[in-house]
Computed example of a mutant assay.
Amino acid sequence: MSEARQLPIGVFDSGVGGLSVLRALRAALPHERFVYLADSAHAPYGERGDAYVGARTHAITQYLLEQHHIKALVVACNTATAAAIHEVRSRYPALPLVGLEPAIKPALAVTRTGRVGVIGTRGTLTSAKFDKLLGSLAGQAEFVVQPCDGLAHAIERSVAQPEPSPGTPVGATETGALCARYIGAMGDFGTAPGQIDTLVLGCTHYIFVAHELRALAGPEVQFIETGEPVARQTRRLLETAGLLAAPNGDQAKEAPHTRLLTTGPVAMLQAAAQRWLGLPADCCETVSVP
């Protein structure tokens, strides 16, 4: 069991958006090793069918188990969770598994106006899993649901571009223009009666455009994302399974070992890793996952 504790945790997403979850995992689990896989060659998942996303999810899970001997898996993608989490649990019952779903339950605890906005990919927000979740909360709040076609993919592309200088209008960038389109379609934001006072970020990519979203929704609107809750749940599962890595001599003083893999161009992952996690380019590599 002591050897199993030192095995890495697998984390995957359709692209670089899941790095927001990895960032939270690294903060909450400082002695763990991680292998992150961005399936960028097959992104965006949110605009593909369930069968396709399910097949990719199974292929990546098998790859991470066979090639990296992961001790747990975090599906850092709302769309993949909705399409395939139940099948993965059935196929790998001994594998501690954490998935994502839009955090609309936590949003209920903080909304004061009773109007909650939810943004996500079309694949997530039209899934049977999300529909069931929404139905279970019927009557507790009014949910304004907005699919954001193209936004996750635009965020992926933006990492290869220079960051906008301070004062750049939101609509001057591709991501900002898409945020403006979708936030504008949802109605009024604010804390007055009838306004949306809470916004659920239902895609892991969206935390990386929080500045643009904040400029559009206003400073009083509360944002709800899933990175920290997922990290807490991962820690609970590892503790229950006796798989939580413990500091061991000099190892406790070392930075966590993190490998970043992509099925697409490595430059995009390197840029995202440096910008969002402060990780060096040499921790990234391209792999093939048939």
Rank of each mutant, 00 (worst) to 15 (best):
residue 87 E to Q: 10
residue 77 C to S: 09
residue 133 L to Y: 02
residue 104 I to S: 03
residue 51 A to Y: 11
residue 71 K to C: 05
residue 58 H to N: 13
residue 113 T to E: 00
residue 67 Q to Y: 06
residue 146 Q to H: 00
residue 82 A to K: 12
residue 72 A to K: 14
residue 120 G to D: 06
residue 67 Q to M: 09
residue 134 L to A: 04
residue 155 I to L: 11
residue 91 R to W: 11
residue 70 I to F: 11
residue 64 L to H: 08
residue 69 H to W: 07
residue 91 R to E: 14
residue 113 T to W: 00
residue 87 E to D: 10
residue 120 G to I: 03
residue 93 P to L: 15
residue 121 T to S: 06
residue 117 G to Q: 10
residue 152 A to C: 12
residue 71 K to M: 06
residue 143 F to P: 00
residue 61 T to D: 07
residue 103 A to S: 04
residue 58 H to R: 15
residue 66 E to P: 02
residue 45 Y to W: 09
residue 55 A to K: 11
residue 47 E to M: 01
residue 96 P to T: 04
residue 43 A to F: 06
residue 61 T to F: 08
residue 125 L to Q: 09
residue 66 E to F: 05
residue 133 L to A: 07
residue 111 T to H: 07
residue 150 G to Y: 07
residue 130 F to Y: 14
residue 155 I to K: 03
residue 128 A to K: 12
residue 57 T to S: 15
residue 88 V to E: 11
residue 58 H to K: 11
residue 132 K to V: 01
residue 59 A to R: 13
residue 95 L to W: 13
residue 53 V to N: 03
residue 78 N to Q: 04
residue 83 A to S: 12
residue 109 A to W: 10
residue 127 S to Y: 11
residue 60 I to G: 14
residue 101 E to W: 05
residue 129 K to V: 01
residue 147 P to C: 04
residue 74 V to N: 08
residue 143 F to H: 01
residue 91 R to T: 15
residue 120 G to N: 04
residue 147 P to T: 04
residue 117 G to T: 09
residue 105 K to T: 14
residue 99 G to A: 01
residue 60 I to Y: 14
residue 70 I to V: 15
residue 147 P to I: 03
residue 137 L to S: 03
residue 60 I to Q: 13
residue 53 V to P: 03
residue 116 V to N: 03
residue 146 Q to T: 04
residue 120 G to K: 07
residue 82 A to E: 09
residue 153 H to C: 00
residue 104 I to E: 05
residue 79 T to E: 03
residue 47 E to K: 01
residue 69 H to Q: 13
residue 85 I to D: 10
residue 72 A to Y: 11
residue 52 Y to I: 13
residue 147 P to Q: 02
residue 71 K to F: 09
residue 108 L to A: 05
residue 137 L to N: 01
residue 64 L to W: 12
residue 150 G to E: 07
residue 151 L to T: 08
residue 94 A to R: 15
residue 80 A to F: 05
residue 47 E to A: 11
residue 152 A to R: 13
residue 99 G to I: 01
residue 45 Y to F: 14
residue 155 I to Y: 03
residue 83 A to E: 06
residue 120 G to T: 04
residue 86 H to E: 15
residue 51 A to E: 15
residue 60 I to A: 14
residue 44 P to C: 00
residue 72 A to G: 12
residue 78 N to P: 01
residue 91 R to K: 12
residue 107 A to G: 02
residue 100 L to I: 10
residue 45 Y to I: 10
residue 132 K to H: 09
residue 54 G to Y: 06
residue 82 A to G: 07
residue 94 A to I: 08
residue 122 R to P: 05
residue 81 T to Y: 10
residue 117 G to V: 06
residue 95 L to E: 15
residue 136 S to F: 13
residue 140 Q to F: 06
residue 52 Y to M: 13
residue 43 A to V: 08
residue 121 T to G: 04
residue 113 T to V: 00
residue 56 R to M: 04
residue 153 H to G: 01
residue 145 V to G: 01
residue 104 I to T: 11
residue 51 A to F: 12
residue 121 T to Y: 08
residue 77 C to L: 02
residue 62 Q to Y: 12
residue 118 V to Q: 06
residue 89 R to H: 14
residue 99 G to V: 00
residue 107 A to F: 00
residue 78 N to F: 01
residue 130 F to V: 13
residue 89 R to M: 14
residue 54 G to W: 09
residue 64 L to V: 02
residue 46 G to T: 00
residue 153 H to D: 03
residue 149 D to Q: 13
residue 136 S to Q: 12
residue 123 G to Y: 04
residue 142 E to M: 07
residue 149 D to Y: 08
residue 140 Q to M: 10
residue 140 Q to L: 09
residue 114 G to M: 00
residue 106 P to K: 05
